[in-house]
Design a protein around this nucleic acid. Structure first.
Length: 405
RNA sequence: GGACAGGUGGCCGAGCGGUCAAUGGCAACAGACUGUAAAUCUGUCGGGCGCAGCCCUACGUAGGUUCAAAUCCUUCCCUGUCCA
């Protein structure tokens, strides 16, 4: 590898990165013909991989394409503790079964991005469960309370008088110890994990190993544009979300987030991204179009070009042109609920499962959200005459076609 | 072990005997507008009842005082601060 190739490679690695600790060490490690071990720790607290995770996964994939091996670590042991990272409250621990179930779906989803033949899946319970109490205490002796408390979320919780479980302080150590066991050369993580990775470096040196290089990627804000994307906040796009939902969710991000999504979630060249930015500023390009382009590219990565196109068409049809979607799920209404072919509008919505409670149904009607065959229902006391095939709609996103049985 | 403070709706947070299904903010949902499930503005936001009303369940847990309790008392559980 000559100088230019090295620079080119580093440029690709740097794309979208928040921090590399350190680049000099990285240059040392990346040598032609050397297959590096690249660790990535996954937290199995939720079963779905979302686009936030893919920021790191995509970077791992890039490294795999240069021949390196990914150590995909499933933190089943740490899951039982509950990762305190970024949390202002203690996380409830998960049951063993739940973790294993999550780990399973994780693995299925992760290979939408990673290359399976260059991925080694490991569980940290394999060595953590084998440790006895003496070993745990000795490990704990390698670090100090002051250094652990440097961690932002601990420090903050402590200062604010919020509880911190003693076990939570152990979390960075365990995670660091994983790197020792795996003899990782590089670790990829989100910026919220940098502290843990630094502990890993320190422990590795203690154990006579060369410290891992940390490549930290930014945390992706979720659909609300403020909080980081996470399942528990419900502001995420799952990699298994159906094309249309994926597209819709991506269209709902605030405009100012488009470029970040472009950079971190698509392969668009940074040059053309700059061009888009200029065109947008000069009013040569409509923001909606840019966002749709971004969303379309991402959908096609997970569902293919054709599905993405369909999703775009469907989106325009429903939200821009205000027409009915192509596929409307059928909802069954028991004939026994009818009186002279009629049913109270509130009961209809409830029976169709379009509202969770009848009170909600009433609210929807009063707010003018309910349409039957495109016609607004005004009176919540109304009995409606129904027949097969009638389309009932609440708002812009809930549809059902009546089928009387 | 002791002293003190606190536990309220999905979250944050007011209320501290009746007018409390509980102010306000966030989130969510709906409407208007538009360029979208963006932004902005407006409204809704425990449940049941064919419903301008009535009823049920909710303010850590279990009891109690009272005509009346989220509000007062007691038990227990949980959290924090300080002292030991």
């Amino acid at each position: 590898m000559n100088y230019l190739e090295m620079e080119e490679m580093l440029k690709i690695i740097r794309r979208g990165c928040a921090e590399i600790i350190s680049e000099a060490e990285l240059r040392e490690k990346i040598k032609p013909g050397v297959r590096l071990k690249i660790k990535y720790g996954a937290d199995p607290s939720s079963p779905d991989i979302h686009l936030g995770h893919t920021v790191v996964l995509r970077k791992l994939r890039q490294l795999q394409e240069w021949g390196h091996t990914v150590q995909f670590l499933i933190g089943d042991f740490t899951g039982m503790i509950g990762d305190p990272t970024g949390r202002s409250t203690t996380r409830p621990p998960l049951s063993q079964e739940q973790i294993m179930l999550n780990a399973q779906t994780y693995q299925e989803q992760v290979f939408k991005i990673l290359l399976p033949e260059q991925t080694e899946v490991v569980y940290n319970s394999a060595w953590c469960n084998a440790m006895n109490f003496t070993e745990v205490v000795r490990l704990a002796a390698r670090y100090t309370v002051a250094r652990i408390m440097e961690r932002d979320d601990f420090e903050k919780r402590f200062r604010e008088g919020r509880p911190i479980g003693l076990h939570e302080l152990l979390y960075p150590l365990i995670q660091g110890y994983d790197s020792v066991v795996l003899k990782s050369d590089i670790e990829l993580c989100g910026t919220d994990q940098i502290f843990n990775c630094l502990v890993a470096r320190s422990l590795q040196q203690d154990f006579g190993q060369s410290p891992e290089v940390i490549i930290a990627l930014p945390l992706l804000e979720g659909l609300d544009g403020v909080q980081k994307m996470s399942k528990s906040l419900g502001n995420y796009v799952g990699v298994t979300d159906p094309p249309q939902e994926m597209f819709g969710k991506l269209m709902s991000i605030p405009d100012n987030l488009m470029f970040k999504y472009f950079e971190l979630l698509t392969d668009i060249e940074l040059g053309s991204l700059e061009q888009i930015r200029r065109d947008l500023k000069a009013n040569n390009l409509h923001p909606r179009k840019v966002k749709a382009d971004m969303a379309g590219r991402i959908v096609s990565q997970y569902h293919g070009e054709k599905a993405a196109q369909l999703a775009v068409q469907e989106f325009d049809r429903i939200f821009r042109d205000r027409e009915l979607p192509a596929d409307i799920p059928e909802k069954i209404i028991a004939a026994a609920n009818l009186k002279d072919g009629k049913i109270w509008i509130i009961n209809l919505l409830y029976e169709m499962g379009l509202v969770a409670t009848k009170a909600e149904g009433q609210r929807m009607v009063c707010q003018g959200a309910v349409l039957i065959n495109q016609e607004k229902v005004i009176d919540h006391r109304q009995d409606v005459l129904i027949k097969n095939g009638l389309v009932v709609q609440i708002g812009k996103r809930k549809f059902g076609r009546i089928r009387i049985v």
